[in-house]
Amino acid sequence: MSDTMQAIVYDDFGGTEQLVLRDVPAPTPGPGEVRIRVLRAGVNPVDWKVLSGGLRGLLTHVTPIVPGWDAAGVVDAVGPDVPEYAVGDEVLSYARKDWVQEGTFAELVTVRAVDVARKPAGLSWDAAGALPLAGLTAERVLDAVEAGSGDTVLVHGASGGVGTLAVQLARLRGARVIATGSPSGHDRLRALGAEPVAYGDGLVDAVRELAPDGVDAVVDLVGGVMEQTLAVLREGGRHASITDHGAGEHGGRWVWVRPDGARLEALAQRVVDEGIDVEIAASFPLSDVAGAFEQSMSGTTRGKIVIHVAD
C-alpha cells in the first residue's frame, strides 16, 4: 500500500481559497472497510457548505479536512472481514462518514463495505461518480412524500443534480411532475417528462393553472419556498425538503440522507436498465476543485459536476 496520496485539503473554514492540493498520508482500511482508488468524485452543494462551516452544528469536523462525499473507482485494498469485495472490483459509494475529515477528493478513500455498491458494466465512470448522493437523495425525498402512481408532484429546483433525477424517478413511479426551473432549462425539463414552470412571483398561479385542485406532494430541493409550497398543496397533501430544517413545523419532513450501499447498487442498475439520465454539467481535474465549487455555488448548474481524479 502506498504511504501517501494527493488530496484536496483545507485546514480552516472559509472560501475556495482554503482548498490546497497536497500530499497527505494514505488511509488504511480497517475491519469491515475497503479502500477505493478514486477515478471520479461527484460535487454536491453540501461540499462547499461544509467548507464554509455551515454543518458545524450537525457533524464533528476534524482538520485537516479532505472534502467530498461521492466516489467511483476500483477497490485498491480490503480490510479484515470483507469477503464481499476483492481488489479490482469496480464500485461507487456515497462515502459520507459520521464525522468530516477523510473525503473523496483524493486519490484514495476508505469506506465501510456496507456503504459500497458494485458498478454496473453499462454505467459510465462520470455517471457513477455523480450518482450516489444525488440519486439516494432523490429516492429518499420521493419516499418521504410517498410519491406514487396518479399523484401530481411539484419539484422545486428540478434542474439540478438531485432535481433531474427526482423528476425521472417520480415519472417512473407513475406520477405527474410539475417542475420549477429557469426558463432556459424548460426544454430540458420537458424532455425528462415534466411540466415546467418558472421561479418567481408567478409560480403559485402557474402551478394552480396546471393543478387547480392543488398538488398531492411537493419536493423542495432549494429552500425558501415554504409559503409557495403550502399555497399549492391540496388538503392532506405531503411535502418534504432537503434544505429546510423547519419543514416539520409545517406538517412536512426534513430529509437527511444516510449512506446505503444496497440501495445505491439497485439504483445504479436501474439507471442502466431503465435509461435514467445522470446529466453531467461539467468535469474538473482534482487540481481545480475550487473551480468546481465556484461553478456549483453560482446556482446555474444543470445536472452534476464531477471531479476527474484519474483514468
Score class of each variant (00 low, 15 high):
residue 287 S to F: 02
residue 106 A to E: 07
residue 230 L to V: 07
residue 125 W to E: 07
residue 266 A to W: 02
residue 288 D to P: 02
residue 266 A to H: 08
residue 259 P to H: 01
residue 105 F to A: 11
residue 185 G to D: 14
residue 279 E to A: 14
residue 5 M to T: 07
residue 224 G to Y: 07
residue 151 D to G: 09
residue 179 A to Q: 08
residue 62 V to G: 11
residue 30 G to F: 08
residue 70 D to M: 02
residue 140 R to W: 03
residue 280 I to Q: 00
residue 288 D to K: 03
residue 191 A to D: 15
residue 306 V to S: 04
residue 245 H to E: 14
residue 255 V to I: 13
residue 15 G to I: 05
residue 112 R to A: 04
residue 134 A to N: 09
residue 22 R to E: 12
residue 242 I to R: 01
residue 193 G to W: 09
residue 76 D to K: 00
residue 292 A to L: 06
residue 88 G to C: 11
residue 35 R to S: 14
residue 112 R to C: 03
residue 284 F to G: 04
residue 261 G to Y: 02
residue 26 A to E: 03
residue 163 G to H: 05
residue 31 P to K: 07
residue 258 R to S: 05
residue 196 P to A: 13
residue 231 A to K: 01
residue 145 V to G: 04
residue 116 V to Q: 02
residue 235 E to K: 12
residue 157 G to N: 08
residue 249 E to V: 11
residue 207 V to A: 13
residue 95 A to P: 00
residue 136 L to P: 01
residue 235 E to Y: 14
residue 248 G to V: 02
residue 146 E to P: 01
residue 28 T to D: 13
residue 120 P to T: 09
residue 287 S to N: 02
residue 3 D to R: 13
residue 113 A to R: 04
residue 242 I to F: 10
residue 236 G to N: 10
residue 31 P to C: 06
residue 125 W to H: 04
residue 11 D to S: 15
residue 258 R to N: 00
residue 220 D to E: 08
residue 119 K to S: 08
residue 117 A to V: 05
residue 216 D to C: 10
